[in-house]
Amino acid sequence: MLQILVEALAKTYRVAERAPGLAGAVRGLVRRRWREVHALVDVSFSLEAGELLAFIGPNGAGKSTTVKILSGILRPTSGRVEVGGLVPYEDRVRHVARIGVVFGQRSQLWWDLPVLDGFDLLADIYRVDPAHYRRRRDELVAMLRLEPLLGQPVRQLSLGQRMRAEFAAALLHDPAILFLDEPTIGLDAPSKLAVRAFVRRLNREQGVTVLITTHDMHDVEALAERVIVIGQGRLLADGPFESLRASVLAERRLYIDFAGPAPELEIRGVTVRTRTERSLELAFDPAVIATPKLIAAIATQHAVEDIHVDEPAIEEVITRFYDLHDAREA
């Protein structure tokens, strides 16, 4: 069952231009210039209930714009959007009651209120049945280990703590769909792991549909089976991350530590990336020479101490992808 449907979505902004310097400031008093920014151009995709989708793209690509349109606070210039059968920006109140949104670094909780008071207020705002609210709240507090933080005003929390409270706040009203806009940004490593684990659980055990936008490729690696890449307002890829990787970089890396000095190697399909006295880092295309064959070719000829196969870092894959599509930061 399709839960989210996006068809030919487009969004164009008009932005005022301002020249720098004192002269420009004075000119700005008299005449304004406008230019058009195409934030989204013909984007189409759909999600089934219970899916987890990662939205990646360079800065300014249109990820946040898409999330804003899906959550109903921004009206597109053209195209069709349906979430759970509703058109988000036309049915705002009904729509937002069914979704949860977490913006990285921006908290929805009240700055001076203790966390628990903020939760209680949200329950009133979302009209959650009191018994149901208490159960859900206690469940989330346990899952996110918020017990010691409940009495503290939000402004006293660290970023990691705030994000955990944010997640709980976004889920108190049991939304079927969760939008996460760069939720791990600025978090320390343990907090990132905790957030990913939580989102995974939410999606796999409780069937919450999750759409996450992120820069952090490890978020993608940890969470998403399906990835959409957006660049300069256009949809560049939509599918499993593995096929994305394969389409861009069909490359593997082989790291070898030799017993003796590192030898010269001339094998078809293999490039030497780094050489030290006793080790080599090789890049090779498994389509040209299969991994076991390559290992055998080297090990039978030279004394090898250690071998390690790996793939290029995700960041490299993605950067290569952006480059291929001329989609670098706008």
Binding site: R18, L22, A25, V26, G28, L29
Partner: peptide, 15 residues
């Protein structure tokens, strides 16, 4: 003095 002055000039509608 000058930076403040420039800043204030930007707000034409406010002026």
């Amino acid at each position: 003095f000058r930076t403040r002055f420039q800043l204030m000039l930007q707000y034409r509608a406010a002026a």
